[in-house]
């Protein structure tokens, strides 16, 4: 009897497990395997490279720059878009006029395809005909070569990413806020707790499960959302805005070097696994689930 239910459980899990194996785990393993070979030349078989691809990576300045850029990119876009998302959610959760319209407005960037948006932002950022420099011009500030200046290219990408992401995360916060129990707030109000105190000691802790969820997603996105690079900067100028995944793409499809791309992918994968472990391991213990 017991064995039957055990079998039953595995059978129920099988479809999902099969999909996960086929599309996640097996490709991940073959990626590691590919990273151990030199690129094939013509129809000759691939030659075993051992760890040579990894050595090449350690010597590769562009890899280090992309990694560095990516860390900064994550460090800025993740907190910024999360704080903005929470602020917007609190704002549209209140009883204000036209809040449906406001919610929709905040959510619009999420609904638009990244490539389409990037094509529009390309013109926003254009130094001569773009919106941003025109606005700066009204205040008598000299224009910036947003995407063409090594100092500004990455921040420009960050700005667009935050704009794009915040609305998406807002939806999660909004849903969580609406599920909060009003009674606790009424009790707190009776005790004479200030608004700030209520936010800090009630809302924030109660939102922690959502925050963890959003955080995990935001960190993942910071490493896997590179669509806009194709349109805006192609990683330039001189790699100033190159990100890891884009560099992987370049290697795989512009340089035909699937093996080096696999090597970089292994590193990215390892980093993401590490980050996920860290987030779940450390934060989960501090989170209060009801």
């Amino acid at each position: 009897m017991k064995r039957l239910s055990w079998l039953h459980a595995w059978l129920m899990l099988l479809p999902a497990l099969a999909m996960l194996m086929a599309f996640t785990h097996i490709p991940a393993l073959t990626t590691i395997w590919h990273s151990l070979f030199y690129p094939a030349r013509g129809s000759e078989p691939e030659e075993f490279a051992g760890l040579d691809n990894y050595r090449m990576m350690l010597d590769d300045d562009v890899f280090w720059q992309a990694l560095n850029n990516n860390l900064w990119y994550a460090l800025v876009t993740v907190p910024a878009s999360m704080v903005l998302a929470l602020a917007m959610a609190l704002w549209v959760n209140g009883k204000i006029r036209g809040r449906s319209a406001l919610r929709l407005a905040y959510f619009t960037p999420t609904m638009l395809p990244m490539i389409a948006v990037a094509n529009i932002w390309l013109f926003f950022y254009s130094p001569e005909i773009g919106l941003f420099n025109k606005v700066l011009g009204w205040f008598g500030v000299a224009g910036i070569n947003w995407l063409g200046d090594t100092d500004w290219a990455l921040p420009s990408l960050m700005l667009m990413t935050i704009w794009k992401e915040a609305g998406f995360f807002m939806i999660f916060y909004l849903a969580a806020l609406q599920a909060l129990d009003r009674d606790i707030y009424d009790a707190a109000a009776l005790e004479g707790a200030s608004r700030w105190y209520r936010f800090r000691r009630l809302t924030l802790p109660l939102l922690m499960p959502t925050t963890l969820f959003v955080l995990v997603n935001a960190v993942l996105n910071a490493f896997k959302l590179v669509d806009h690079l194709f349109i805006l900067t192609k990683g330039g100028p001189n790699n100033a805005s190159n990100l890891l995944l884009y560099y992987i793409y370049e290697n795989a499809f512009s340089f035909f070097d699937a093996n080096y791309a696999a090597t970089l992918t292994v590193v990215l994968l390892a980093m993401l696994i590490l980050l996920a472990l860290l987030q779940f391991g450390v934060l989960e213990r501090r989170i209060h689930y009801r």
Binding site: L122, F123, S126, P127, E128, I129, N145, L147, G148, D149, T150, I231, G236, P237
Partner: peptide, 18 residues
């Protein structure tokens, strides 16, 4: 202009007299 000049928007720049 200094810095890099974008290929994709250049035609528009020319057409708008920039």
């Amino acid at each position: 202009p200094e810095g890099t000049i974008e290929w994709g928007t250049l035609r528009q720049n020319f057409l708008e007299g920039k």
